[in-house]
Computed example of a mutant assay.
Amino acid sequence: MNQDRIGIKTPEYVSLNFQLAGLGSRTAAYLIDQIILIIVNILIVMVLFMILYGQSDLLLWSEINSVPVAIAIILMFILNWGYFFAFEYFSGGRTIGKKVLGLRVIQENGHSITLLSSFIRNFLRIIDSLPANYFLGMMMIFFHSKHKRIGDLVAGTLVVHERNTKKKKKLSPIEKEIEKRGLAKSDLFVEEQVLKTFGAKDWNLVKTYCSRFIHLPEEESIRLTRQVAEILLPKARVDARGKSFQDLENNLLVLYLHLKDEWEYEL
């Protein structure tokens, strides 16, 4: 069941292929996330007891300030519900457990998960967890053709395996050029929210540019670099004014690395 694949055509008419995540891998990712949450909850309770112990030498409940207890309860509620919502939206559809297992949540059209989609699918965990121990959600994932639980059905999302880059022993020409120049994603800071504004057309443009410019004569390469930089760098909130064409090339190559994580996970 984990070998099921699905083809998606995006609104930009780009065809993407994904391997759907089945019950086994999704359960393993969920257990990792739960272990993390349990550890954090235990730490919160320990801190709470330390605070209460400091307030009452006799440990009499009548003398204990209820404010720390209320704060701890609210904090634990926000943590346990907001963990999945926040990580999936701000980390490209990946909680820590999903990242370890190489999974991510995407929309049915192949785009990154939106704020509303993340909110809906995680709010409906309440229903998926019925009657106990996530039974309804697991049954839905097991029997649904696209391995969807109720939250996925309502939010219009899929859980897929990310492209496994470890299997690729040979570097592509783009990767060789990036490695040769010693470039890394840290060389160009782009906010997560800004990256989400880039669409498939932007990804195809930067990918096509990076694969072509090294093979062009210098004059054509410079002209192409400046043209593409004028389109993409302002969108990434990078000031291209006064930069040499080599700096622009490097900026575009690093932008390629950022967008690659978001778009190049076809199988």
Rank of each mutant, 00 (worst) to 15 (best):
I120C: 01
Y89N: 12
D4P: 04
R149H: 12
T165C: 00
L259T: 03
G54P: 08
A240L: 13
R125G: 05
S172Q: 06
G199V: 03
F85H: 08
R223L: 12
F123P: 06
P11L: 01
S172D: 11
G151W: 01
L224C: 02
S66Y: 10
S221Y: 10
A86G: 06
I113E: 00
L253N: 08
Q55H: 10
G93M: 02
G182T: 06
I6L: 12
E162D: 10
N80F: 03
L253F: 15
L20Y: 07
S112F: 13
I106K: 03
N250Q: 12
I74D: 05
V228P: 03
E218T: 13
I120E: 00
S221I: 12
L79H: 06
V69Q: 09
W263T: 06
W263R: 08
Q246T: 13
N251K: 10
R5A: 13
E262G: 00
I74P: 03
I44P: 04
E88D: 07
G199Q: 09
Q107G: 14
L43E: 08
E266F: 06
K176C: 02
L60D: 14
L253Q: 07
E179T: 14
T157R: 04
L23P: 00
G182I: 01
F87P: 01
G102D: 00
S221N: 07
A28S: 03
F245H: 15
L101Q: 05
H147I: 07
A155N: 04
R149Y: 09
H215M: 13
R212I: 01
L183Q: 10
K176S: 09
G92V: 03
Q55I: 02
G92L: 12
L43A: 15
R223C: 02
E179K: 15
E12G: 03
Y265T: 11
N109Q: 05
G242W: 14
A155C: 06
D128N: 09
N41Y: 08
N41C: 14
L48T: 07
A21R: 04
F49K: 06
K98G: 03
N122R: 04
D33Y: 01
Q193F: 14
F85R: 08
P173H: 02
L23V: 12
F189I: 08
D33Q: 01
D261A: 03
S25Q: 07
G156D: 12
Q19C: 04
K196S: 10
L124E: 01
R223M: 09
A28M: 05
I231E: 13
G151E: 04
Y256G: 06
L253D: 11
G93D: 04
I126G: 04
M138D: 03
V14K: 11
R125S: 10
K169I: 13
L153E: 00
G151H: 02
F198M: 05
L31V: 05
Y265F: 02
F18T: 07
V160Y: 09
L116Q: 15
H111Y: 15
S112W: 08
N133E: 04
Y265G: 07
T197I: 03
R226S: 05
S186H: 08
L257M: 15
A240E: 06
L232G: 05
L252S: 12
F198G: 07
N41T: 08
D239N: 15
